[in-house]
Design a binder for these strands. Structure first.
Length: 753
DNA sequence: TAAAAAATCGTTTTT
DNA sequence: CGATTTTTTA
């Protein structure tokens, strides 16, 4: 005990040392509700970690502290820094993790209360999409009016708001709602049958658990006496309710966030949660961290001049003692190729003169934009890393491997089973599979059991019976072994026996070799996980893996140039940042010009991007850009106009100064012409500049159009002329509609070929 | 049943 | 354009 006291005192000095007064005050507040409004680059992470260390130094047990983040990376970073302050042994006892991973862990203890098995699997967006497709097929709604994508995202956004299918069925406004409620209901039933939860269920089911069992609620309220939520501006309703339930008794809840950096509204995040915190907890203390330690004055001024165009925010006044710094380059490029060439060659030059690749970063709005940057990097032999996008875990062979493991862990997981049953082919084709599914349904057994009892199924061919029985035996064999042996060994042999690797070896191509290595990497990963977590099971491994994203991977420190979306960049910082594609319709993305709320979110995203930069910021846009294999013409982003001109340095890719009266910038920014598609990239530029009055486009059958209310649809017919022109559009959401062209205000999305 | 060819489709952002 | 799904054919 004596010993520990000394240690605590030493730690205590570390904990407050070098903090500014606001930071210190926040760190030293122990009890009661606390809101920390942390501007970009204000040392937020430091305050959070030091505060947790301070709680522990003041006698709070680390296992009574719950710290919730949005990414595993943030959680890992937090743990690492707490460990530096108070030592590994204490730090690892803190409950720090993402909402999803912590709740998943807690759900496993009491899954039975909700009617789930403890070994439930977690469905990612792909899994849940394919489940939606199956439901649509089953209910005979496929092809008709509902696209699986839109149904899935609607289900998700309802779940984020805790809206049940019954709620929708009761309040249905249209026939469409009725059908949707039906799909939603069936989707949930199927999840339950598969003993699976989607991402949103992890939040909602945890709430249900707390509501259903008073014991469980008490248990966790007692356990998590001190709760801390990072990025509070991005919490959705489910996360809000869950944290409030947990904190209700002790009210030791500390939330940290920056309303100016709320960028997940589309995923159900409710910025109101942070704006209303003081109303939820009237006694809450509030601290504002307004001292920025990251960026130059120029960058901060630019960020401020952008964000002040938003209404509805907590007042903040970011300041810095850093230098004024360089002007912000704004570079007008001819094409997306030139844009990538400019950015990558600029970075390459800096690297050649001694700078490090990891000090730079290229940000873009959509993942699709990464392609040209990759090409440019490869051309110059510049190592790069794409964060997000096609992640390791989304690759086919990796998903297949994980699906095999899922079947092993949770034999009810029909999604996983269907995914791998013919990977490699096993002589169980569509017809046989359908017979097996029917057998499972009519006997109310899970799919694997139907495989096991294939010999009772008179519809099956002999060959299929043998194949199905073999497969079931194969799974059962390894399930038995799992009970006795170390799971990493079993998993390794199991995957080897699936035949995937043999199949790929036979192909022999370079790509196949890559895939084999990826599969092996999963096996290694399992072994490492087992070593790191000696008491864990294969269930644990499979469950945590589905909640991991690319940004969590540790490859950052290496000498590679990071490329990522603006969303992925949240929480990161780089000496020099390039933001590409500042074009109307791309950033801010098109639907934002109708809806002010969306536009404000895009602006916050821009704010996030700008404030990632420490020393230097460059913004680029391109006049032409490839979209869907055809060229589209772009106007500069309206956001460029919002930055104070005195902070900008207008350039051409050659490095020459663009005249301040650069035609594109001067006109494009204020004009109303939308990005329009052409099929010849050599249309003279003059035409582009004179296109301020956009000619009336004549729609044709086959065109893809957008309607303000009805969404996107395909033109299937035209009739009449002049003011009487009528147009038939088949909307993906609601089906066919006959509209009067002059009132419909249709917007061209894509021309027919 | 499985591989190859053809057609279709789409672009936010992610735990 | 490139990925994915549907259709055709062996």
């Amino acid at each position: 005990m004596q010993f520990e006291n000394t240690a605590t005192k030493v730690a205590n000095n570390n904990i407050i040392e070098g903090l500014n007064p606001e930071q210190k005050a926040a760190v030293q507040t122990i009890n009661g509700p606390l809101l920390i409004v942390a501007g970009a680059g204000s040392g937020k992470t430091r305050v959070i970690t030091n505060r947790i260390a301070n709680l522990i130094a003041n006698g709070v047990a680390p296992w009574n502290i719950l710290a919730l983040t949005f990414t595993n990376k943030a959680a890992g970073e937090m743990k690492k820094r707490i460990a530096n302050l108070i030592g590994e042994s204490q730090a690892e006892k803190v409950w720090a993790g993402t909402f999803h991973s912590i709740f998943a862990k807690l759900l496993r203890y009491d899954a039975e209360i909700l009617g789930y098995d403890r070994n439930f699997t977690i469905y990612d967006a792909d899994d849940s999409l394919s489940l939606v497709k199956k439901v649509l097929e089953e209910l005979n709604l496929s092809g008709a009016s509902m696209s699986p994508q839109s149904v899935r995202s609607r289900i998700s956004s309802n779940k984020n708001k805790l809206i049940t299918w019954q709620n929708i069925a009761e309040n249905q406004r249209m026939q469409y709602d009725k059908a949707f409620a039906e799909v939603y209901k069936r989707y949930n039933e199927k999840l339950k049958i598969n003993n699976a939860m989607d991402f949103d269920d992890l939040l909602w089911n945890f709430i249900l658990l707390l509501q259903k069992s008073k014991d469980v609620l008490n248990k966790y309220q007692e356990k998590f006496r001190y709760i801390l939520v990072d990025e509070y501006q991005d919490t959705n309703k489910a996360q809000y309710i869950a944290t409030n339930l947990l904190a209700r008794h002790y009210q030791n809840i500390c939330v940290v966030g920056d309303d100016a950096q709320s960028i997940y509204g589309w995923r159900g995040a409710d910025i109101q949660n942070i704006l209303d915190f003081k109303e939820d907890y009237p006694h809450a203390k509030v601290f504002k961290l307004e001292q920025n330690y990251r960026s130059t004055k120029t960058i901060l001024e630019a960020a401020d001049s952008v964000i002040k165009n938003n209404s509805n925010q907590l007042k903040k006044n970011l300041r810095t003692d850093n230098q004024q710094g360089e002007l912000i380059d704004v570079v007008e490029c001819d094409s997306d190729i030139e844009e990538a060439e400019y950015i990558i060659s600029t970075i390459k030059n800096h690297i050649n003169s001694g700078k490090s690749a990891k000090d730079f970063c290229v940000l873009y709005r959509t993942n699709a934009q990464s392609l040209e940057f990759e090409k440019a990097c490869r051309k110059r032999n510049l190592p790069y890393i794409i964060i997000g996008g096609m992640s390791f875990y989304k690759r086919k062979e990796v998903k297949d491997t994980l699906s095999y493991l899922r079947v092993l862990v949770n034999p009810k997981d029909a999604e996983a089973l269907l995914r791998i049953i013919n990977e490699p082919t096993r002589g169980i084709g569509q017809t046989s599979l359908q017979h097996l599914i029917n057998f499972a349904n009519s006997n109310s057994i899970d799919l694997l059991s139907a495989f096991r009892r294939a010999n009772e199924n008179s519809n099956l061919q002999k060959r299929a019976v043998v194949a199905a029985t073999n497969f079931a035996n194969f799974i059962d064999l390894f399930r038995n072994r799992l009970e006795e042996e170390e799971y990493s060994d079993v998993a390794g042999e199991y995957i080897a026996e699936t035949g995937m690797i043999n199949f790929l070896t036979m192909m022999g191509t370079d790509e196949a070799k890559d895939r084999i290595r990826n599969i092996e990497q999963v096996i290694n990963d399992i072994a490492n996980f087992e070593m790191d977590n000696p008491d864990s099971t294969l269930e644990d491994y499979v469950q945590q893996i589905s909640l991991i994203s690319d940004i969590d991977d540790k490859e950052f420190g290496t000498e590679r140039l990071p490329l990522m979306t603006l969303h992925s960049a949240k929480g990161l910082e780089f000496k020099e940042v390039f933001i590409a594609g500042l074009e109307r319709g791309l950033f801010p993305l098109f639907r934002a010009d109708q809806d002010p709320k969306e536009e404000e979110e895009e602006r916050r995203l821009f704010y996030v991007g700008i404030t990632r930069a420490e020393q230097k910021l460059s913004l680029t846009y391109s006049k032409k850009r490839m979209k869907f294999g055809s060229v589209s013409f772009q106007a500069p982003s309206s956001f460029l106009r919002e930055i104070d001109k005195s902070l900008l340095n207008m350039l051409l890719p050659s490095g020459e100064k663009a005249q301040s009266s650069s035609p594109t910038f001067a006109r494009g920014a204020g004009s109303t012409f939308a990005a329009k598609q052409h099929y010849f990239s050599d249309i003279p530029q003059q035409e582009y500049y004179s296109q301020i009055e956009q000619p009336q486009y004549r729609f044709r059958v086959g065109d893809l159009v957008r309607h303000k209310q009805f969404g996107v649809g395909k033109v299937t017919g035209m009739s009449g002329d002049g003011a009487n022109t009528k147009i038939t559009v088949n909307f993906s959401n609601i089906g066919k509609k006959l509209l009067l062209l002059q009132y419909a205000k249709l917007e061209l999305v894509k021309q027919a070929k």
